[in-house]
Design a protein around this nucleic acid. Sequence first.
DNA 1: AAGATTACCTGAAGGC
DNA 2: TGCCTTCAGGTAATCT
Length: 310
Amino acid sequence: MPELAEVETVARGLRPLAGRRIVAVRFGKTDFIDHPERIEALLPGSRLVEVRRHGKLLLLAFDREPAAAKAAPALPGARFWLVVHLGMTGQLVLHEAACPPARHTHVWFSLDDGRELRYTDIRRFGHLRLASPEELAVLVAPLGAEPLELSEAEFRRRLGSRRARVKALLLDQHVLRGLGNIYADESLWRARLHPMRCGSDLTAEELDRLWRAVRAVLREAIRHGGTSISDYVNALGRPGSYQKRLRVYGRAGRRCPRCHAAKIERIVVAGRGSHFCPRCQRAGRSAGSGSPRQVRVAAGKKLPRSLGPG
DNA sequence: AAGATTACCTGAAGGC
DNA sequence: TGCCTTCAGGTAATCT
């Protein structure tokens, strides 16, 4: 599942393509693409000039052919961006043009060196679109801070003021951009925090631990080329190796690699499978079984019998 | 209005 | 053996 570390790895793999020109674009299914006709009109003849990662977004900057200006007056400038979100099963992989395409390949970008950049996406949760610099600014404006760039004070400010569960906050792209389910669980384990803890209940010391944990986990995952569990591969079609180093994700029932005593449990938090060590990551008072709404009711009003203590 | 839940999509896995 | 159901999760839309 492409999260920050996977998208970063793909971006690094695509960077050597800077300077290449797109000569043709071909589509399969386009129901996950915004205005494919715009892509068809603008990309051929354009040159890739830059590859960036923004959270889980892959941003490819192109300088357009002057001749293409007439074809797409909606993008008046010379520079535009191909914005790619890999969703759950998206892959952007460089192939020789002669290589037979994988199933679920939906976009072919033919390059001027005879190779093809292909977008494959089994479940089509991914997203593709073209954006002017102005449109891109609007697109990324709601996104939160880059996890590897924000300060500890900023991290504390963003999470410590929120009543939502810390797991939900880590997954919320408006708080931090780029974390997904795997690295959220790994970070919480490393910081020894229960996923159901509420952001505003975390002490400054706990938030500091979490900030350090997120950075350490992401750096380690990037160093190992990301996590390949089901579908993820890099821009050359090769898997990462961080799945071998996961401490809790997908390891329910196995012994905690830190305390070697308790077994990893899996519960649902924020609608997502959440893996943690019940011994190393204690729930604390605010992280009981009820929803935050029920906790609030419990503090002020009489409880229904079924929710009461004991 | 913040936080929770659901729909989207396909393939793998488990049950009978 | 094969069909059926359930589950996985990133995000946007919808509900409370």
